[in-house]
Design a protein around this nucleic acid. Structure first.
Length: 848
RNA sequence: GGGCGGUUAGCUCAGCUGGUCAGAGCGCUCGCCUUACAAGCGAGAGGUCCCCGGUUCGAACCCGGGACCGCCCACCA
């Protein structure tokens, strides 16, 4: 206790690391796999990238999850927060490649086997960082059973799923136009593509007709792809061009004969109305090409350079150089008819930042429609509930328009496809094929393929483990919008198909924290704010502590995106400090009693009041957790601690002797408050808990107060409410009158007010000499008269102003009540409240 | 081109099923070291609740239209 006397501030950097150690040593976060999922509580973390660092998105996501996890653990449920990391194919491979390039070598230079070993080494070095950062945040996850999507057992699960899907005919190989990322040398999915606005030059190029009867002018922003043109298309209803359909144009520079075809896709109002068709390098042209049986020519290779098919003039050039050269050549022949700037959305790789190159390539696909149907049903039937519900429509829309998923990636880091080829044979199996001459497909699976198995593969599937029985399906998934399709929808599909049940009961979609200026928080923009720097302090940033960061993020959180506000974090720090000092006050003054607080009519009214108010915040908190209202939860606790516990209760109580009765109440309120706040601000509450007499063990393993309506005391709330109103009114009057706060003034209080309490908090002397004219201060309980330090003229002026204000309000209320429509149609209670208000105002006017 | 969300105090945001809902934190002003906390305490100023119509006894909240700002989806050369 001695140390508490001297610590007037809560110092998170001293306390928090110490508390983390105690938690980790307790085993509380690693429950035994007993019972079933309906009685237990589990959350699977959205696995962060293994080599990543904790960013603000993780911090918010983690703070919410930990609040829920701690809450349910303190409800007494066996609670597991499944923790682990994702191998994150492209992202991780890119990092290691950068490192190799910095070392003067490359992945091709060292070969696949050595490269993969390098990535594992990288993971060994960096892989622990983010986990340590989660610990620093206070995340009460199951660190003893950390999983990784490339763990041996996890790989087996992935292989089993792939093979099963292949055997069902859902997984197949096909030639298709894919989003080729020249940066990562891999196909990436539509979902990994982001559109950026780009201003290109739209070239109008003349293609002569073969019969010499003129020319066709087409518009394109990518003249270099003309080398792969195999047709020209016009809209069949476009009368300007119907005479051309069926004729033939000659492709400049190449000389290829291009049939002129009609296709509905062509817009008459765009460009020249004539579209060059390049099935090899444009997704739309690819579709048109398939419809019309056109040849598919590839002049751009996977390395982003022009291929031999582009002709000797161009082979080997970059796309940009080829463009310049093509334009120059066309210009020389006088075939450029116009150039105009054209601003449009162009796909870029989310990962490498390079412009996507649509290419035709042989890839593995997964048909999704069969699995989508039950995933749709899961949400429409309510077995999976998405919050807020508006997000479920987006989920539905996506699933209802689902397209095949290209699951192969041309990477080395990931789950290599369990596919082997020998001449024309293909073998797909969990183990390599028998016999000689088989070569394994070098591609790996899209990272999201393995992520989709996360909730059950982490629990030991396909084995029937106690962990699966105890913790699958999980209760809640916390995520930002961006991976609703990428991850959540696929997880629901896979869960239903392979684990026999939906993987999650509730999906809560939370906000994205933007930079303070409203831009995206991102490292590349330089707008990122490091949560760990906020916790531990860094340069200009004070060490706010993990409690403050958690509180701040919860208080900021919402279902819509919000700008980061350091003030909310500061508010969290203030709360932690306030709670620390309030607890010091209690702990340094009470007798160490172990009695229950006295409840009921004969106790002090402020004791009954605080117990009643405590019940309200307990009930509200439970409701806010149920409704995923995390900002209300955090701010509700703040209000209770500040406005009710500290500003009023502790101040009221200071006048009293700290006897056994008071000690019992204070300790009870302290214990309950610490417990209730613990899921949000676990560190300061755990630290204080260790000083509470009779509080055994860790608070993290303790129990939450439960709502109990019977402890609401309306009478005490009214009485203390009147005290608060009166004291506030008197303080305001004092301040306005320029009277020093410390100066005690003689006063007379109306009957029915808790005189001593009011006198104490408002610095009044009920026995003092009453000289001269008193000032009148209006309170809901009646007029308070105060003598001394009063300027009569000033007082008269104020009184007049008050009278006018009152009369105006009375007139308003009277007008309302005189309105027949209001009296007739408004609910009885509303009318009654208006009458009561009028009554009160008239009383106040009379008192004046 | 579709779809969704937003617009409330100087800043960041709460305001549920229309009636003490005009709020919080920060910032600002004034006054206080009132023996838990100066990272504190008390008081205060500050808002045509984006605009225009409508429904209603009553609208920040519901309906229609408009203006800005975001986000998502979509194949426009």
């Amino acid at each position: 206790m001695a140390d508490l006397l001297e610590r007037t501030r809560f110092d998170p950097s001293e306390v928090e690391p110490r508390i983390v150690e105690r938690w980790l040593g307790s085993g509380l976060f690693s429950p035994e796999p007993e019972g079933d999922a309906s009685e237990n509580y589990s959350i699977a973390i959205p696995p962060p990238n293994v080599t990543g660092k904790l960013h603000m998105g993780h911090a918010l996501n983690g703070s919410i999850q930990d609040t829920l996890v701690r809450w349910h653990r303190m409800l007494g449920r066996r609670t597991k927060w499944i923790l682990g990391t994702d191998h994150a194919g492209i992202a991780t491979q890119t990092q290691v490649e950068k490192k190799l390039i910095a070392e003067g070598t490359s992945r091709e230079g060292i070969g696949r086997e050595a490269f993969v070993e390098q990535v594992w080494e990288w993971r060994r070095q960096q892989g622990g960082d983010i986990i340590e950062q989660y610990k620093r945040l206070g995340a009460s996850a199951d660190y003893e059973h950390e999983r990784f999507t490339l763990d041996e057992a996890y790989v087996r699960a992935v292989m089993k799923v792939f093979v099963a899907l292949y055997e069902k005919g859902y997984v197949y190989r096909d030639n298709y136009m894919v989003n080729w990322d020249p940066g990562s040398h891999s196909a990436i999915s539509d979902l990994e593509v982001e559109d950026r606005e780009v201003t290109d030059t739209l070239f109008h190029i003349a293609y002569p007709l073969e019969d010499g009867g003129g020319e066709v002018v087409v518009a394109t922003v990518r003249p270099e792809t003309m080398l792969a043109d195999t047709a020209i298309a016009v809209n069949p209803g476009d009368e300007r061009f119907t005479h051309l359909v069926g004729r033939t144009a000659i492709l400049p520079l190449v000389g290829r004969r291009l049939p002129i075809i009609a296709d509905e896709y062509v817009k008459t109002y765009f460009g020249t109305g004539c579209l060059k068709i390049t099935p090899g390098h444009d997704p739309n042209d690819f579709e048109i090409g398939r419809r019309h049986g056109l040849e598919e020519i590839s002049v751009i290779g996977e390395d982003g350079l022009m291929t031999d098919a582009a002709g000797p003039e161009y082979a080997g050039l970059t796309v940009e150089d080829a463009r310049d050269k093509v334009v120059a050549a066309l210009e020389a022949q006088g075939l450029i008819r116009a150039r105009e700037p054209h601003t449009h959305e162009v796909p870029f790789s989310h990962r490498s930042g390079r412009r996507i190159e649509p290419l035709i390539s042989l890839q593995w696909f997964m048909r999704m429609d069969e699995l989508a149907a039950p995933a749709i049903e899961a949400v429409s039937s309510g077995r999976v509930k998405i919050h807020p519900s508006s997000q479920s429509r987006r989920y539905m829309d996506w699933l209802e328009n689902i397209r095949p998923w290209c699951v192969s990636r041309q990477l080395w880091w990931g789950h290599q496809l369990p596919v082997w080829y020998r001449e024309n044979d293909t073998y797909v199996g969990e183990t390599p094929p028998e016999g000689e001459g088989w070569t394994r497909d070098p591609d790996v699976l899209d990272t999201w393929f393995s992520s989709a198995l996360w909730p059950f593969a982490t629990l030991g599937w396909p084995e029937d483990t106690p962990e699966l029985r105890a913790f699958y399906p999980t209760d809640v998934l916390l995520t930002a919008r961006d991976i609703l399709f990428l991850w959540v929808a696929r997880m629901v599909m896979m869960g239903i198909e392979f684990a026999g049940d939906v993987p999650i009961e509730h999906v809560y979609v939370h906000s994205v924290i933007q930079a303070p200026d409203g831009r995206r928080m991102s490292k590349s923009l330089g707008t990122g704010i490091d949560p760990i720097a906020l916790i531990e302090g860094d340069g200009d940033t004070p060490a706010y502590g993990a409690d403050a960061v958690r509180f701040g993020l919860l208080a900021m959180s919402s279902t819509q995106d919000v700008r980061f506000s350091e003030e909310k974090v500061a508010q969290g720090r203030a709360l932690a400090n306030k709670l620390f000092n309030a607890s010091r006050f209690v702990l340094l003054n009470v007798e160490a009693v172990d009695a229950a607080p006295r409840v009921g009519g004969d106790g002090f009214v402020e004791d009954r009041w605080i117990l009643s108010r405590l019940q309200r915040v307990v009930a509200d908190s439970h409701a806010n957790i149920e409704a995923f209202n995390f900002h209300k939860l955090a701010l509700g606790l703040y209000d209770f601690v500040y406005a009710e516990l500290c500003d009023w209760y502790l101040e009221l109580v200071k006048a009293r002797e700290f006897d056994a009765d008071l000690s019992a109440t204070m300790l009870h309120v302290l214990r309950e408050t610490l417990s209730l706040c613990h899921p949000v601000i676990p560190f300061v509450t755990e630290e204080l808990w260790s000083h509470v007499p009779g509080a055994d063990g860790l608070l993290a393993g303790g129990r939450l107060p439960q709502p109990d309506e019977s402890l609401i005391d309306e009478e005490a709330e009214r009485t203390v409410g009147d005290v608060i109103a009166a004291v506030s009114a008197i303080r305001a009057w004092r301040d306005g009158a320029g009277i020093k706060p410390g100066e005690r003034l003689a006063a007379a209080l109306p009957a029915g007010l808790q005189a001593e309490a009011v006198a104490r908090l408002a610095r009044l002397d009920l026995e003092g000499a009453r000289d001269g004219e008193p000032a009148t201060v209006l309170t809901p309980s009646g007029a308070v008269e105060i003598w001394g330090g009063v300027d009569p003229e000033e007082e008269a002026r104020k009184r007049e102003a008050q009278r006018e204000a009152l009369e105006a309000e009375i007139a308003r209320a009277e007008g309302k009540l005189a309105n027949d429509g209001f009296v007739a149609k408004a609910p009885e209670a509303v009318v009654e409240a208006e009458r009561a208000k009028l009554e009160r105002l008239r009383g106040e006017l009379t008192a004046l």
